[in-house]
Design a binder for these strands. Structure first.
Lengths: 93, 93
DNA sequence: AATCTATTTAGAAAATTTTCTAAATATCTT
DNA sequence: AAGATATTTAGAAAATTTTCTAAATAGATT
């Protein structure tokens, strides 16, 4: 996992919205797309970005592709942020 | 604070690097700039993005501008991520 | 007040990202 | 196997972001 990819993925509002939607469980690409005012191709692009960032993974069933949150990466991001908690510099004495 | 702005700000590697540098305490714009292979104007642009996202704040002293982490916003970001912890949908029964 | 140092602003160029349309792929149904 | 449904890929256009150079601002020093 690269933080560069992860943060880039999180920087787009549609992609963050997709992640929030997926909290409820798996959704197919089409189901996800129907919540947005963009073409299926564009949604597919966003899903591919989330997938490359390991924020979601996909499973195929029939002619559907289901997307699901990959919660383990969220843990790693939390660790990145934890770097900023406590032990502040010298408090600028 | 808007998450859109915050995540956009975090999506650039130079800006994340600046945040990491600031963990040690306040630094002037020039001091920050000297760690990068880019013009002062470009560094100034990145600092302005971080500032608009409330990730840092500035204080002026003489003809220097010092930048400092605004840790409170990090807490808010952690809250955003907390949305993804536990209480997963229906686990797709 | 002239000059120097530190930083920002303006405007343009370069790079990247987002979006679309059209075509391709893959699986299902008849 | 032909047609229907779901999704992705390719390639181009549109939008946004990043970067630079040059000029502007602001405070400090001579």
């Amino acid at each position: 996992m690269s933080f560069a990819e992860t943060f880039k993925a999180l920087s787009d509002p549609a992609r963050r919205e997709i992640l929030l939607m997926l909290r409820g469980g798996k959704m197919s690409a089409g189901e996800i797309g129907s919540h947005f005012d963009m073409t299926g191709a564009t949604v597919s692009y966003h899903l591919s970005v989330l997938k490359k960032a390991d924020l979601v993974y996909e499973t195929k069933q029939k002619n559907f592709v289901f997307y699901e949150l990959n919660t383990s990466v969220f843990e790693e991001i939390m660790l990145w942020f934890a770097q900023f908690k406590g032990e502040n510099g010298d408090e600028n004495k």
